[in-house]
Every structure is written in C-alpha cells, then in structure tokens.
C-alpha cells in the first residue's frame, strides 16, 4: 500500500504543528512539518501531499485580527520556483484535485478569512464569514463538548456523534456576512460540529458555548466536505492523559481527536491512492 502523505504547514507564528503531525502519524499517515518558506521557495510542493494541515497558533501575532495577515500571505504570496505563480493557485488546485484540507483554530480562521470556508460559491474566493472576539473579551482555554452533525458532508467527522477537546482562543466567535450566508450554511449542512452542553445539545450558553458563536458554530466544511476547519483542538486530545479528568474516569488509551485524522487517512486510501 502506498503511503498517505500529510503536510503540516508552519512558520510565522504557528505553534501546534508538532501535535498535528503526531495526530497524522497515529492515524497511519506520513507527516512532514514544513515551513511556509520552503513551499514559497518551491522546494516543497503541495501537489506531493494528500492532506494539508493548517495548525493552530498566532500567524503574524494575529496583529491585524486572527490570521488576517496570514490570509494576505496565502492570497497574494508567490511560489518562486520552478515558475513564479501565486500560492493560492496551488491551493485551489489542491482542493479541486479532491485532496483534503484541515485547519484547526488559527488554521480554521485562516481558511475562513481566505474565503475557502464555507465556500458557498465555488467560482469566487471571497470571505462570507469571519471569526471575531469572544463575547467574554478574553482568550480562554477550556474543554468543550461538540455535537457532530451526522448529515454533514464533512469527511473528517464521518461516523462521529460527539467530540470532546479544548478551545484555546480569543477570537472564535463565528459570524456571517449576512443572514443569507447563515441560512445557506445550515441548509448545506456545512456545520459539522457545534458547541454543545454536556448532554450533547447545541447551545448558546456560556461556558459550553465559549465565545458566543452564532448557531453554536464550532467548525465548518465546504460543500465537498473535504475542506474542514474548527476552533477547538482535536490534536490536543490524542492520548488518554490529555483528558482533564483522566485520573478519575475510565478512558481508552487513544484520545477522541485521533478519529478525525483516521477519517482523513481512510478517505485518502479509498479515493486518492
């Protein structure tokens, strides 16, 4: 069996690349952690990978708003070799070729600010939604329950009903450019994960919904289900001892976050190899 190849793109402030790559490896993929500069220099090509991981962090310090400067880099940055062209062309081709993109936290913010999520109009790359400051006005690190929509086209959440992992962000409140965008997202089942109470019901109540996200949106996928991003960190729960109550509950050794990576790897094996 040939290998499933995952790329974890880092640099300029990402900080979850190590655990993101570990998640890919636990799920059976080969993972390379690569600096964006290597891709822009043309030394590493997106086309050589099946899964593009955009890890959490603070791209450019989130100084212009979360992942905003990072989105400018992705949108306008150029790959210098072998022939100079915009990086975004490679990224669009990567998606069009049926491959997978997985953004967590800052990586999700990046996808939304680029317009790759929710991508209601496949012909236009334009942001239709955003992630803004939490209602609390603060960065917060706390574990959240997520309810998974079984009818979402999302490849990553297939077969899951619940997920438990931490949020760690200050700008995670999901908002849409218009009510129409919200309705289209709902109709397209493009919200694979919603913040939920401990019984699994989507909620607007703090702290279960930690940021006041509209419609309890914790993550989005595009209509193909192959581009997926979420604010919470599944890669922070790869091992039993990551769970905040592992010393008092009976838990399997593998953390719940691994399932998302396994789904991605399975999809690649079935469709791209």
């Amino acid at each position: 069996m040939s290998a499933v190849r995952a790329l974890v793109l880092t640099g300029n402030g990402t900080n979850c690349e190590r655990e993101m790559a570990h998640g890919c490896r636990v799920a059976g993929a080969e993972a390379d952690v690569v600096h964006t500069a290597d891709v822009f220099a043309g030394r590493v090509r997106l086309a050589d990978y099946h899964i593009l991981n955009l890890p959490g962090g603070f791209l450019d310090g989130d100084d212009l708003g979360a992942a905003k400067a990072g989105a400018v880099r992705f949108r306008y940055g150029t790959v210098r070799a072998p022939e100079e062209h915009r990086f975004i062309e490679d990224l669009e081709r990567f998606v069009a070729d049926g491959r997978l993109v997985f953004g967590v936290c800052n990586g999700f913010q990046l996808l939304v600010k680029l317009g790759l999520l929710p991508r209601l109009d496949p012909d236009r790359l334009e942001p239709a939604a955003s992630l803004t400051h939490n209602d609390s006005g603060r960065f917060e690190d706390r574990w959240v329950h997520l309810a998974v929509d079984p009818d979402s086209p999302c490849v990553f959440t297939r077969g899951l009903t619940r997920l438990y992992c931490p949020v760690r962000h200050g700008e995670g409140k999901f908002v849409t450019a218009s009510a129409g965008v919200g309705a289209a997202i709902t109709a397209g089942r493009l919200v694979p994960v919603r913040y939920a109470d401990p019984d699994g019901r989507p909620t607007q109540a703090y702290p279960w919904n930690p940021n006041g996200s509209q419609d309890a949106v914790a993550g989005l996928c595009d209509p193909t289900g192959r581009v997926f991003g979420l604010m919470p960190h599944p890669e922070a729960f790869l091992h039993r001892t990551n769970h905040p109550r592992w010393t008092r509950e009976d838990l399997p050794d593998e953390g719940q976050g691994v399932a998302l990576f396994r789904n991605a790897v399975a999809f690649v094996r079935e469709n791209l190899l």
Binding site: N15, E140, D141, R142, E235, L238, P244
Partner: peptide, 21 residues
Amino acid sequence: RRYDHEVQGGSVIKPFVGVLD
C-alpha cells in the same frame, strides 16, 4: 483560563482538575 496551558499536546496534569475541572 487566560493562559494556553496545553499547547504542544503533552498536557498531563493541568492547573485545574476534578469533576468540574
């Protein structure tokens, strides 16, 4: 809670523990 205490993925004993964390 304002500090990210689990980035890097190796958190084992967190600053807050117990049935309600």
